[in-house]
Nucleic acid binder design. Sequence first.
RNA 1: GGCACCGUAGCCAAGUGGUAAGGCAGAGGACUGCAAAUCCUUUAUUCGUCGGUUCGAUUCCGACCGGUGCCUCCA
Length: 470
Amino acid sequence: MPEFRLYNSLTGEVEPFAPADGSTVRLYTCGPTVYNPAHLGNFRTFLFEDLLRRVLRMRGWGVEQVMNLTDVDDKIIKRATERGITIRALTDPVVTTFHADREYLRIQAAEHYPRATEYIAEMIALVERLQANGVAYRADDGSVYFAIDKFEGYGRLSRLDTRKIRTGARVAQDDYAKENAQDFALWKSAKPEDEACAAAWDSPWGRGRPGWHLECSAMAMALLGETLDIHAGGVDLMFPHHEDEIAQSEAATGKPFARFWCHGEFLLTDGAKMAKRVGNVSTVADLREQGVSAAALRHFVFSTHYRKQLNLSAAALEASIEAVRRIGDFSDRLARETAGSPALSEAADTLLVEATTVLSDDLNAPRAVGALFEFISAANRALDSRGSDPAALGRAREAFRQVNGVLDIVPDRGTSGGELADWVEAQLEARTQARARRDFAAADAIRKSLEEKGIAIEDSPSGTRWKSVR
RNA sequence: GGCACCGUAGCCAAGUGGUAAGGCAGAGGACUGCAAAUCCUUUAUUCGUCGGUUCGAUUCCGACCGGUGCCUCCA
């Protein structure tokens, strides 16, 4: 197997990667802020991380993944206040929705989904550590800030020259009493509305709540140790979120916070970043309503490299729906064939080599999808010309299973079992009899009625097959 | 204003200093009672534009045009 390589935002280069301990990758992925169901832009990033996770496992490593759930922040407090409920009451249902959406998209579960509000003690301890190290200060408003000029190398990840970050209008609008406009809050003193919705905790600095960046550092270190193998998220998190995480983590421990930083690019809609503020978001619920399967969305997302912007369009989704249909048909065929040929076996070997090679090269999923289609063509050809070797078929099934185990784009289709299946089989039997007496009008009528119910049929020398196409 | 990225067939999208993967859509053919599925053939002498480097550039450099993002909460 070729060396596994991954783009590292820290260096701006694709570098060889292996977990520090040689066996388990400690992966931290920034998760959703749970005040609203995550949109497809968010899920593009989570899908990229799912791919990363699966490729790491394909490489034979274990993965210990953490995805945080930010359940306390300004927006959450604002909304909870509007509704007169606690932040917990607001966020619980959103967390449930997040996991339902995640499962629909077949994103594998991380090992840990820590909620910020359950790690308050760890966050306070981290702030105390930073204070002891002289890089945090308490301001007149009672909040505690990180002094970025005390941390050498601030801005290294995002390559932003700190002196060039404008300290003008928008930054100055901040209500907080920072010494330097670029300093960020570690601990925010509580306001009455924070108390009202149960978003305040006791601390050495009085009642308050954690700053946003703090939670990731505290939870990552609590669950994965002080140096992560990989820290991933969307590109918009690079600055200031990840920059601040690095500053506060490294200022506390004196150790590198993450060996690799990986960032997924945006999903665009109508040529603009999908974001709530732009008002162009769509959700998993919208997708389901439009009849776009998880398989189709996964195909769509993995058709473009994760470090390239991807534009969501009806036409592109439609193409993915068709592409996934072909993959599904092939999958069905592989399941019902009984033997293969040397050509099939050869195609299987090629697929395995190609897919592992390109996926190991900075997660080149588009090429892996290409390799999969080349395999499908070659395998169909081999299967058409018949073979007599069950082992060759076994190799093809295994190769297909392995590659699909990473991309996971074979659609779910109910073609057996249940009342529907019994009914369809009865219809097909009636049609077969009609065809036998050459009553094609009756046969076509049955086919048409099945189509109206979303059942497509295919006649073959060995009988008639059916599949659900919705 | 600062910093990045992107611009490849009708659409989506890989890619390499040596002559353009794959998918969708389209066209023709085989198979089929007709379909569907599958297979075969076919669709960019050309990779935003103009220069430069080179024996040779889509791939490197420069300028320009167009698009997107980050610099503020943000996947």
